[in-house]
Amino acid sequence: MNWKKIAAVFMACGLMTGAASAQQPAAESYQNMLQQGKFQLEYTYEGESGLTRITTDKGMRLVDKQPDGKDWNLEAFAAGDKIYQFYYEDKKQCAKSLPLNLLGSSSLSPDERWDKKQQALSLPDELSVLSWQDKWTSHPGSLSAPAFTGSSQRNVDGADYDCDQYLCDIRNQAGGVSGQLAYNFLYHEGKLMKVQKYLLHQGQEQLLATLLVVKLDGTVPEDAFASLDNIPLYRADLGDINDLLDVPVQEGTLGGSINAH
């Protein structure tokens, strides 16, 4: 659309100019692995410590975090028609499950923060550009789907990258665009290294975040779901007497058949 290109020329730094060229060859393989649901991703953000890992395979998704470079802590898991969260009870790993169709229920306990767990399963915003329809990722109604706007070479922090850029419009009720989110995917020798996210608004450009991709590939290790073995599983609080008295009901154990390949 014409007006988008005008905006690109107007802003000097960072944005693509000229005719749209093709995405990096590697982009397509990343898109495929994300969209087909078989990948393992580890990422963090610039200036912050701690890694987040998302493992997706056979319709299951596991998210865990490594806050201090040592142990991985289970965060959220989805398989079949249920979502799971994890916690410690007297230093023992436990889990709670909730059927997906009860996610908006008014009898859910606000303490269990199932909404936060649902969000924990989503792809980081920057990578959702490559898989916009990801089952676990939602987008605000005002944000349009990303459009590829061009490739170029960029030097970021003293290193050269091949850069693919995508733009999403933030739409308003007047039918116009209040701003745009620009994503610069930085590749080195065919490998995705970083994604920078910018806000373009009122003629200004602001770097919002830089996602650092530690690992993103389409092979899932055999023991990727091994940490889900033998975890006592409880039912989510749903407004019954056990919920009221804080005496959760055990449903069984997580693990076993879930790990079967």
């Binding site: 916690y87 410690y88 936060k116 980081p124």
Partner: peptide, 20 residues
Amino acid sequence: NNIPGLGIFGSIASMAMQNS
């Protein structure tokens, strides 16, 4: 910072809560 769209008051409560 990196959970898109969360308000200041949203989702921060009990994030540190590990125990059920």
